[in-house]
Design a protein around this nucleic acid. Structure first.
Length: 427
RNA sequence: GGAGGAGUGCCAGAGUGGUUGAAUGGAGCGGUCUUGAAAACCGCCGUACUCGUAAGGGUACCGGGGGUUCGAAUCCCUCCUCCUCCGCCA
């Protein structure tokens, strides 16, 4: 959520930013509506405060008169209070209504893209930030996609998932399950080595938490809900982990705060099904290791680059061909100011699969969350939040299986072998 | 799940209807003293909104929400959380 103050002070920059997200014409009027409503809010607030101040004054006066034993005068002073109370009640209701309308409008405005974010409407207009420099692996004609390999080697079973739960809930087994566990362990170890504190958060969160990172109200349809208890299954560890710092004021010297967590991720992916979502390409439950940083605004873009390096390191160790995209304004997530996507090459499918998304949210989340730091002058400022997948398992597994298939079995990258305990998946 | 108790500032902990945003202590920050440090002493030490160029005002907040009252941290209702005991249980 953007700060009203910034919308007021830097209106032109905000409008320019929204245009980069392909907002136009009537849509942009929201900004003027917000400013007008905020004017209203201030005026109403002032009226209410003045009324309350007067009531406080009378109450104090009555207190003093009572103290002096002047009962009659005290009774006298009470006349007129009722009318004032009625009026302030009215103003208060007005103020509540204005505030809630204002909040609704603010929730509808996405984050402003960073100045380095390219223009564009569709994923096709994303910029290749770092192309794969080597050769892409080529496989013999009889090479199989990962869903077929899974059957050959008994690695995971989607039909079985349907039996237990429904479509999109894979059951991993045998060497497949072991591979999952190995990847989780590997990614967590790497993150801890890079200075992130390991966190094991709850997999269900309440409404305030879902609101803090922006899942509510924008992406409600993406989450599984437990209505009876008013809880949400997390779509990513970002949600509980970032919210650890909600409503905190941290000393500047504690920044950056670096946290990592492995969690399963649950996504409804409503309406996202199509021909290209076979196998593990898109599932409702997958495993992901997330890295999160709370950073000083002056350093957050440097930190973003650092997070890219971390993810690059992981992919290198997994020996997977990858490329990095800089997302254009039209393809970026609602809350992000700048996002890089990582894609790995899936050799059997002959396509790139997104395995990580690394973003700087600037103050968009911290404003909602009231996550702030105290600077050297003692002033309280909103911190920046960043996060990235490091990494999302399902598609990594897909690429790993496909790219490394040989006549003898499926080769495990060296870095992973000490975690799997085997160097080759065999029948 | 049942019974009882409790939720106050960064922490500990007073406060049971009237100038209480909240005693006191600790921590922290600044200063005096000291070669330096400690101790001692002095001062500062909440957040948000709002009016104001500023100085400085105003309002709200003592777990959340609602109510009673001229006036609520203090009384009432409700929800949440924590603690103790019992039950159940990986």
């Amino acid at each position: 959520m953007l700060q009203v103050k910034i919308i007021r002070d830097e209106k032109q920059r905000i409008l320019t930013g929204l245009r980069k997200r392909n907002w136009q014409g009537a849509q942009l009027k929201v900004i003027d509506q917000i400013i007008a409503l905020d004017d209203d809010r201030r005026a109403t607030q002032k009226e209410l405060d003045d009324l309350l101040a007067e009531q406080n004054r009378v109450a104090k006066q009555i207190g003093q008169l009572m103290g002096q034993g002047k009962k009659d005068e005290a009774e006298n002073a009470k006349s007129g209070v009722a009318a004032m109370k009625e009026k302030s009640k009215e103003r208060e209701e007005q103020l509540e209504s204005i505030k809630s309308r204002l909040e609704d409008l603010l929730y509808s405005v996405p984050n402003i893209p960073h100045k380095t974010v390219p223009k564009g409407k569709t994923p096709e207009e994303n910029k290749v930030f770092r192309a794969w420099k080597g050769e892409l692996p080529t496989l013999p004609a009889e090479a199989k996609a990962h869903w077929d390999l899974a059957k050959d080697y008994n690695l995971f079973d989607l039909e079985l998932g349907v039996k237990l739960t429904g479509a999109g809930f894979p059951v991993y087994r045998g060497q497949g399950a072991r591979l999952q566990r190995a990847l989780i362990q590997f990614f967590l170890d790497e993150a801890v080595k890079a200075g992130y504190e390991e966190i094991m958060p709850p997999h269900l969160v309440n409404e305030a938490t879902a609101r803090g990172t922006g899942q509510l109200p924008d992406k409600e349809a993406q989450m599984y809900t437990c209505e009876r208890d008013n809880l949400y299954l997390i779509p990513t560890a970002e949600v509980p982990v970032t919210n650890i710092m909600r409503d905190e004021i941290v000393p500047e010297k504690n920044l950056p705060i670096k946290m990592t967590a492995y969690t399963p991720c649950f996504r409804r992916e409503a309406g996202a099904w199509g021909a290209h979502v076979r196998g593990l390409n898109r599932v409702h439950q997958f495993d992901k290791i997330e890295i999160v940083q709370i950073e000083h605004p002056d350093r957050s873009y440097e930190t973003l680059q650092g997070m890219l390096k971390h993810v690059m390191g992981l992919l290198k160790k997994l020996e997977l061909p990858y490329r990095i995209l800089l997302l254009c304004g039209g393809d970026m997530g609602f809350a992000s100011a700048k996002t890089y996507d990582f894609e790995v090459w899936s050799a059997a499918q002959q396509r790139w699969l997104e395995v990580s998304s690394v973003s700087n949210f600037e103050t968009f989340q911290t404003n909602r969350m009231q996550l702030r730091y105290r600077d050297a002058d003692g002033k309280i400022q909103l911190a920046h939040t960043l996060n990235g997948s490091a990494l999302a398992l399902a598609r990594i597994v897909a690429a790993l299986l496909e790219n490394n298939q040989t006549d003898e079995g499926i080769r495990i990258p060296k870095a992973l072998q000490k975690y799997t305990g085997f160097s080759m998946i065999k029948r």
